[in-house]
Amino acid sequence: MSKKKVVHYINQFFAGIGGEEKADVKPEIREGVVGPGMALKGTIKEDAEIVATIICGDSYFNENIEEAKTEIIEMVRKYDPDLFIAGPAFNAGRYGVACGAIAKAVNDELGIPVLTGMYPENPGADMFKKNIYIVETGNSAAAMRKAIPAMSSLALKLLKGEEIGSPEEDNYIARGIRRNYFAEERGATRAVNMLIKKLKGEDFVTEYPMPDFDRVDPNDAIKDLSKSKIALVTSGGIVPKGNPDKIESSSASKYGKYDISGFSDLTEADHETAHGGYDPVYANLDPDRVLPVDVLRDMENEGVIGELHKYFYSTVGNGTSVANSKKYAAEIAKELKADCIDAVILTST
């Protein structure tokens, strides 16, 4: 049997082109393997070969999703591969969205099997888990050694057309697909067994997990902005110069609360960003590009809004866990309520 052909997609970081300052590079294709493709190649080499690697900057992809998808699909098409692998993206948000979006697009347009890998909290996982196989990985590239064998094993199954097992068996994020199978025991017996376990307080596994729709209904609109007190919150990491609370550049363990009552414009001299997940040059030169204090101060003076709240709240959204983000926001919201804030403008990078 001749070897199957695989095309691999990675971002600018894993290609060694550069970090955030290079996140706007356009898609390019290189023959053979690049970066993590080396490890993938080693584990699938008996049956398949990575014929080409496509590299695209994370910011370019996310800011130009449609164009990027079209360009990349054409690159993939030329190689007529049997499988498309993207990532793994771990907990890198934009990379995860790019991997999920391009894998789904390749599957839709070219009809070949696709595969990616990411941490379950990556926003790309929630967006695309129903459409494609996403192997569950750890939250950083330190987990590469575990991610590669899991991805290779699923890749080989897809290439050989073998039946894919359950999410637990094949280490992918559940897609919400139900499949018929013959159980050893009839339904009534299984239900009673489950109930007994539950009554005893033992662990049991439901056969029909309820979907987790965590949606919050929108609050009522503001009637009169000129009487409203508005607060700014950001996940873009804007902090006073010198980052006094030492908010981490990724996986932030805290948020900050800072007084802006004396500012009508944020500048290079007084504020900066602590965020490590985007190119900080632009935000450091003019922090208003992330936290629009200048414009809101003007609007306050003109009477368009009632008042700009004395404090803004800031954290770094880069790789910060959902549990922590929720906790920070719940604490922030509590304070904002106590301060009688009418509305919040939350900016993200």
Partner: peptide
Amino acid sequence: MVKEIERAGIIVVHMCTV
């Protein structure tokens, strides 16, 4: 974060690129 602020009963608008 947006959702938790909304859940607390404060109206919020999310300004973001993606």
